[in-house]
Simulated scan of single mutants.
Amino acid sequence: MINNAIRDRAAGAIMGAFIGDALALGPHWYYDLAQMRRDYGDWITTYTDPKPNRYHSGCRAGQLSQAGFILTLMLHSLVEHNGYDEADFCRRLDEELFPLLDGTPVCGPGGYTSQSIRHAWRCRVEQRLPWGQTGGHADTTEAIERTLAIAVRYALQPNRLAVFVASNARLTQIDDTVLSMTVAYAAVLGMLVQGHALDETLSGKLMQLVKTGQLPFHVVTVDDLQPPRPGDPDPPRAGRFASPDALLTPSCIAAAAADPAISIEPAWKVSVVYGMPCAIYHQLPAAYYLASRFRSDFESAVLHAVNGGGQNLARAILTGALVGAQAGLSGIPQRFLDGLENAPVLLALANDLAGQIDTGR
Score class of each variant (00 low, 15 high):
2 I>E: 07
2 I>H: 00
6 I>C: 01
12 G>K: 01
17 A>Y: 13
17 A>L: 08
22 A>V: 11
32 D>R: 12
35 Q>V: 13
37 R>I: 11
41 G>T: 12
41 G>N: 14
41 G>Y: 03
42 D>I: 11
44 I>L: 03
47 Y>F: 15
49 D>V: 12
50 P>Y: 10
53 N>T: 11
53 N>Y: 14
59 C>F: 13
60 R>N: 10
64 L>M: 13
68 G>R: 04
73 L>I: 14
74 M>Y: 14
77 S>A: 08
80 E>C: 05
81 H>W: 10
92 R>N: 02
102 D>T: 14
107 C>P: 08
109 P>K: 06
121 W>R: 00
122 R>L: 05
123 C>D: 07
124 R>Q: 02
125 V>A: 03
132 G>F: 14
136 G>K: 06
142 E>M: 04
144 I>Q: 03
145 E>C: 14
148 L>H: 07
149 A>C: 08
150 I>T: 12
152 V>K: 05
153 R>D: 04
155 A>I: 10
155 A>R: 00
156 L>R: 11
158 P>K: 03
162 A>R: 06
163 V>D: 05
167 S>T: 14
174 I>G: 01
177 T>L: 13
177 T>S: 10
179 L>N: 11
194 Q>S: 01
203 S>Q: 03
207 M>A: 03
211 K>L: 05
211 K>Q: 09
211 K>E: 13
214 Q>A: 04
216 P>L: 09
217 F>D: 02
218 H>D: 15
219 V>M: 06
220 V>M: 06
228 P>M: 08
228 P>F: 12
232 D>T: 11
234 D>E: 15
236 P>H: 10
241 F>K: 01
241 F>D: 00
243 S>Y: 13
247 L>K: 05
249 T>R: 15
254 A>K: 04
254 A>T: 12
256 A>K: 12
260 P>V: 12
264 I>S: 00
268 W>M: 04
268 W>G: 03
269 K>Q: 12
269 K>E: 11
270 V>W: 09
273 V>N: 02
279 A>V: 13
282 H>S: 02
286 A>C: 04
287 A>K: 07
289 Y>W: 15
289 Y>I: 13
291 A>R: 07
298 F>N: 03
300 S>Y: 09
304 H>W: 13
310 G>P: 04
312 N>A: 00
313 L>C: 15
321 A>F: 11
322 L>V: 13
323 V>Q: 01
334 Q>R: 14
337 L>H: 15
347 L>K: 09
350 A>I: 08
351 N>Y: 11
357 I>Q: 03
358 D>K: 06
361 R>K: 15
